[in-house]
């Protein structure tokens, strides 16, 4: 086949290099992908891996409740700053009198 081999195309796809190639190499790579079903399958597999990975890290109920709690704590701390002093947050040591 004219242009890059399957190995070269797979490497370019795997590295997300298509947009940074020169016009001629980009054209040849796209032509190869259009004509080679194996390389198209490889690219589709990588897209699927990305899609499934995105779905893995969204919507976990335990994570979502932790996020809400962290956000509340941080916003309360910031509200404390706005009113003139840092609000205590969970886990802060008790206030001690200043050293003389």
């Amino acid at each position: 086949m004219l242009g890059p081999s399957c190995r070269e195309v797979a490497e370019r796809v795997g590295r997300d290099e298509l947009d940074s190639l020169g016009r001629w190499d980009r054209l040849l790579t796209r032509m190869h992908l259009a004509l080679c079903r194996h390389c198209r399958s490889y690219a589709a597999q990588l897209r699927t891996i990305g899609r499934v990975a995105r779905s893995m890290y969204r919507g976990d109920p335990v994570d979502e409740s932790t996020i809400s709690r962290l956000e509340e704590t941080l916003l309360a701390d910031l509200a404390g700053r706005a009113s003139g002093g840092a609000a205590p947050v969970d886990g802060d040591p008790p206030a001690r009198p200043p050293a003389i």
């Binding site: 081999s5 399957c6 797979a10 399958s41 597999q45 893995m56």
Partner: peptide, 26 residues
């Protein structure tokens, strides 16, 4: 090792099946 000396696939990848195996795949 997936390619021969000409850079062609030795064992071609399979097109992923979108509709089935979604939770298993995850």
């Amino acid at each position: 090792s997936r390619f021969d000396e000409d850079g062609a696939w030795i064992r071609p990848p399979r097109t992923p099946e979108h509709e089935t195996e979604a939770s298993e795949l995850r």
